[in-house]
Amino acid sequence: MTIHHYDTVETFPDKRIPDPHQDAYSRSTLGFWIYLMTDCILFAALFVTYAVLKESTFGGPSSKDIFELKTAFIETMILLFSTVTCGMAVLAAVKGKMQSIRTWLGLSFLLGASFIFLELREFSHLVHEGFSWEKSAFLSSFFTLVGTHGFHVSVGLLWMAVMMAQISFCGVTVDTFRRLVLFSLFWHFLDLIWIFIFTFVYLLGVL
């Protein structure tokens, strides 16, 4: 077998952006959607667990005692806004504007990082108050559900850093563009999960 390296941008010199109906591209996107659905099921299991254990406070604090809507609301806004900037980065990639991709991705990264910072601050605050995950089943399920989302966001941050490096080194190629689109799907998905967390955990928690 002869080994044949090909960069598809060379194969399609007149097009910087691949045809979205091209086989490999649509296959990747479909597969990634299906992966997101598996992740969705995973979160569903955690949401159900939280719903079942929400009242199992075991003498510890209940959701009304510990949740602060203000932080959660700020976190929500930050995450929503980072989705907007992420979308702008994809639009910039369509136009092939390198500088603007870097700016928008960088902004998304900062927003994502500040979200994680706020979440960790909330967690450490709770632990300092003596309300750690060991206290009750309710707190276990709360830390796990919100923490799993936070873990996903952290993975997203790592991915974003890798994407920025890739785009800086390789430019917008068929591969990097496809990866950027998949990343954007992932980031939007996390946003959606957070909306559910905000509603079911925080909003319904303080009511």
């Binding site: 995973l42 060991e134 276990s140 796990t144």
Partner: peptide, 30 residues
């Protein structure tokens, strides 16, 4: 189905490694 397994095993792991109370007899676990 498998993501449910992944989640369930993760919860058992957290019970065992971090002292959480998902499935313990005490601490409000179920």
């Amino acid at each position: 189905a498998f993501p449910i397994l992944t989640a369930t095993l993760a919860l058992l792991t957290l019970d065992r490694y971090l002292g959480m109370h998902f499935f313990t007899a005490g601490g409000g676990g179920n």
